[in-house]
Design a protein around this nucleic acid. Structure first.
Lengths: 201, 201
DNA sequence: CGAGTGATTGACTTAGATCAATGACCGTGG
DNA sequence: CCACGGTCATTGATCTAAGTCAATCACTCG
């Protein structure tokens, strides 16, 4: 379920790791594309800069995220990539990847499947962000991430991470969870949240 | 640049159009997947329902949007699709699509390229949503959607649509634009916004 | 043991949501 | 041809939920 699971050995073997210091650029707009990046450690940002020097973040990638998938189908980059912390990235060179794509059509399908999955996940997060109330946003998250028992959700990381993921401050999340617990809507034990059967049904 | 541009004639020829009344379901969780949907008119929602009947919207698709790309690689649906208005959808049957995929590897690449593009666009919108200030959010939108002259942005639809896209109420957007205009940051003429050179640089 | 981080709660402020009203515009049907 | 219903654009007033600042406690790690 990691974003690079679909990559075959042939491509992995050609990967190149690279360390970056904070502030160092990975590529610039206009550079020729070199391949697919995976962030191993630290944080890397894709940024577009307008003529007055204002920056707009296109993506903030952390460990485990992939970068610049679309660049595989384009000859130059259209944004900057900069490490915002000391970071380590892995490059899967474009040539090796495209060669594998040509040799193995099934691989392209896996790639497409992974991308389709991502599109869905991103759209879902986007919908969540359209909900303005913190409580409803948490509800949305819980409903979507319910385990198959349809009762519990296991939180992946820290609550702070979750807060960032939900687009809330961590304080707002703590308070919201506290209120939901007080109202008997959920029960928490460690990093597991149990949905209490709603009263109206 | 439409989401279905990559579809070849062979697949288009097999498309099936279908009209839905408001509230009508397109498919249910557990149903076998039938193909890729394109919304021609109206609105269709992908929804996940939890055991207490609470709904979480996974995607709200309007005219021009595509639906359930990931279902091409899965045998059953994992959510409900319901028209929220009278709507018309076009179905590209799975069999025809997969057959074309098998016949023409280049097509899968086009599909992947389109998805990669979408992933990037969605990630960018997500980053925008992480910005809490309405003004900075508008700035982000403008910087990202600047035309090649790097000075002007042409608004696609109505301001209300844009507001929804930005995750703001239309009132908030009007006010923000008014303030930015008053501050000389932008100039508006019709649906074109011109970025005034920032003062600090 | 002290530094660093996560979890939590309190107090205060504010930006944006909400409710409301108005004018412009546009198509349409009588 | 014009009145009318609908939607967009815009602005005002008000309210509240979430952001911000701040403090505390628990825990881990070297």
């Amino acid at each position: 379920m990691t974003a690079t699971d679909w990559l075959p050995e042939a491509v992995r073997a050609n990967a190149i790791d690279r360390k970056l210091r904070a502030g160092q650029a990975l590529f610039h707009a206009g550079d020729s594309t070199v391949g697919l990046f995976e962030v191993l450690e630290g944080k890397v940002r894709l940024v577009r800069v307008d003529r007055s020097g204002r920056e707009a973040v296109l993506q903030a990638a952390s460990a485990g995220d992939t970068l610049a998938e679309a660049s595989l189908f384009s000859s130059t980059y259209h944004c900057e990539a900069v490490a915002t912390t000391r970071a380590e990235v892995r490059l899967y060179p474009k040539a090796a990847l495209l060669a594998e794509f040509a040799r193995d059509p099934e691989l392209v399908r896996s790639f497409a499947a992974m991308l389709a999955q991502q599109v869905m996940a991103l759209r879902t997060r986007l919908e969540r962000y359209n909900i303005h109330s913190a409580r409803d946003r948490v509800q949305h998250f819980l409903t979507v991430n319910m385990r198959t028992d349809r009762r519990t959700v296991t939180l992946p990381g820290t609550l702070k991470d979750l807060a960032a993921d939900l687009g809330l401050t961590h304080e707002a999340l703590y308070r919201t969870l506290a209120r939901m617990t007080a109202d008997g809507e959920i029960k928490r034990s460690g990093n597991i949240i149990r949905l209490t059967r709603s009263t109206y049904d």
